[in-house]
Computed example of a mutant assay.
Amino acid sequence: MPTLFPEPRTTTETRSQRALGHTIVVPAGAEWAPTVPFVEPSEGVWRASLYHDVLYRCRGNLTRTPARVFNSCGNPRTLVSRRFADRFWLARMAAEGVPYWKRRSMYYSVRAVGLPIWIEKDQVSFT
C-alpha cells in the first residue's frame, strides 16, 4: 500500500543534476522525501525529488541553503521560481525513466497543491 509520507532520506555525498539548461548542486546532508498523494514513489521519483525538495525548502531563495543552481553559462542564480522547481522536477523524472502518466499526474498534483508549502516558513535542513 502506498505511503502518504515516506521516511525521509539524507544525502551522503554531494549530488548534481542538469535539466532545463541549469545545473543544481546539492551538498551532503540534505534531507528529502517525495510526498505526492496516492502515488508510490519509485527510485526514479526519489532521485528526481531531491532537487525539487531542496528548492521548495528554501522557497527558491538559494541564499538560505548550501545548494546551488547554475545557468547554462555557469553563472550562479540566487532565486528560482516555484514553476522552475516544478518543471526541473518534471524534467528529472523524465530523465530517470518515470512513466509519462505517472510523472504528469505527480507534476499536476504538486502544481495544484504546492503553493502553501512554497510560501510556508523556512524548512532548510542540512546536518
Rank of each mutant, 00 (worst) to 15 (best):
M1R: 14
T3E: 13
L4F: 13
L4W: 12
F5C: 09
P6A: 09
R9S: 07
R9D: 10
T11C: 09
T12P: 00
E13T: 15
T14C: 07
T14E: 13
R15N: 05
S16N: 12
R18A: 09
A19P: 08
L20K: 02
L20Q: 06
T23K: 10
T23W: 03
V25L: 13
V26R: 01
G29H: 10
P34K: 03
P34R: 02
T35N: 09
V36G: 01
V36H: 00
V36S: 02
V39T: 12
E40G: 11
P41R: 02
S42R: 04
W46V: 06
R47F: 05
A48G: 05
Y51P: 05
D53R: 00
V54H: 01
L55F: 03
Y56E: 07
R57E: 09
G60H: 06
T63Q: 10
R64Y: 13
P66T: 06
A67K: 04
N71Y: 07
C73G: 07
C73K: 14
G74I: 08
N75V: 06
P76S: 11
L79Q: 14
V80M: 09
R82T: 07
F84D: 12
F88E: 01
F88P: 03
F88I: 03
W89S: 00
W89P: 00
W89N: 01
L90A: 01
L90Q: 01
M93G: 03
A94N: 06
A95L: 08
E96M: 11
V98T: 03
P99G: 08
P99S: 08
Y100M: 11
W101Y: 10
R103M: 03
S109D: 00
V110H: 01
R111V: 15
A112E: 04
V113H: 08
V113I: 15
G114F: 09
G114P: 08
G114K: 07
P116R: 12
W118I: 08
I119C: 13
K121Q: 14
K121R: 15
D122C: 14
Q123Y: 00
V124T: 15
V124W: 06
S125M: 04
F126W: 12
T127K: 15
T127A: 15
